[in-house]
Nucleic acid binder design. Structure first.
Lengths: 210, 210
DNA sequence: CGAAACGTTGACCGTTTTCAATTACAGTGG
DNA sequence: CCACTGTAATTGAAAACGGTCAACGTTTCG
């Protein structure tokens, strides 16, 4: 949230408006002229594109803390619909104001670029993890990515149900994978933390047992 | 490729250097001071982070046409290794030059922001598709996302093997899904193109047969 | 205190992966 | 113009894997 505020802060604070929507409310429609960008404080917003024949594709589901419609800043009209999936609270910034600010204040633009660059890096990393088919492997990759220190230790600040969703498997499957990894001695579980055991030590055991 | 060039063009063209690497060559190492950013013209580059215990995680695999290490522009040192997976041709831009240009030329910064914003939008969309579990559904979503016109038609410029990889399933599974979708009349295949049949017409049939 | 959410494990079942085999082409050299 | 070769497109069958359902103990929180 801190990083998100950072570049929005650069816009004239006065123009930053908070606004509430109820579930199913429409924030904007495909084709409408772009008037503002958004930062979701709470709730979920669905971005959907409608095709010529009436069918649709969900392009993204924005969650609390995210900004969205950034690309619209560079387009004349929105290229998808934004509909509140739940009640939500968003902050809106006028496109015109933002562009005005950025044309003079290069620092503001840099802040935006930075925000986006990190976003890209994170999304790519997430994507890489999701490309791993095997559950144990994917989970290990996810844990490695979030672990720190030597040996790598993972601090669990969220519950496994959440993590399961992020990793892209069901809660149950994750638990099974966890106990498998523990049996293979690739990880060691303690209340609130997970220690990732080094390849060398673990892989020998794993190969024998399986 | 056009859009990628667009913001690199804004950097002093003289400083834009082409450079070749052979497979396994190292472009930069984690911890090194950031000196440049990259645009991959051809080949594949792996971005890998090493952990304290020597194990590693792949953060991303850059492919031809992509830029990478954009986030490093805002960091003092690279946070991962970049290793050529194949022989490749990259364009490099000095970080110092780029920052200098951007501090005065707000247009250049906006161009970068635009490039990144589109990247974010595309990645999110890709991600959304990958979150669909069912192969037929995911494939339909992918096709809808890439189709144009009414009825939505998909022009096949790549072979299915490639597409299968992008969609996140094996080649064989995709073929099976294709024939299933055709049987259900959700799509109609002809040499080089696929027509997406409207929900209404197709879904009735599908429900009966299954 | 009780309901709801979280953590955990087992069994069963449907979908995908794998492995294997076959067909369809496009380009190549004779 | 044809046999020849390699890659893409298909389809089949068996095995592996994760989803779903079910059951139960444990926390959490109003």
């Amino acid at each position: 949230m801190a990083s998100i505020q950072s570049w929005l802060d650069l816009a004239d604070t006065a123009t930053l408006q908070g606004r509430r929507y109820k579930a199913h409310d429409v924030l904007f429609r495909q084709g409408e002229a772009v008037s503002q960008m958004f930062m979701l404080e709470a709730g979920r917003v669905q971005l959907v594109r409608y095709l010529g024949d009436g069918s649709s594709v969900t392009l993204h589901v924005a969650r609390s803390g995210e900004t969205f419609a950034e690309a619209s800043l560079f387009a004349a009209s929105y290229h998808c619909d934004a509909v509140a999936e739940t009640d939500c609270l968003v902050h809106t910034v006028s496109k015109a104001e933002l562009l005005a600010t950025m044309s003079t204040n290069s620092e503001a633009t840099l802040a935006l670029a930075k925000h986006l660059a990190f976003q890209v890096r994170d999304l790519r990393a997430k994507f890489e993890v999701h490309n791993i088919r095997s559950l144990p492997d994917r989970l290990m990759a996810w844990m490695r990515m979030h672990a720190q220190g030597n040996p790598p230790v993972l601090m669990l600040d969220r519950n496994w149900t959440d993590i399961a969703a992020e990793v892209g498997f069901t809660r149950e499957a994750i638990y099974r994978a966890l106990s498998l990894l523990e049996k293979r001695e690739q990880i060691r579980r303690t209340k609130g933390t997970i220690i990732l055991v080094g390849e060398e030590k673990a892989s020998k055991l794993a190969r024998m047992q399986l």
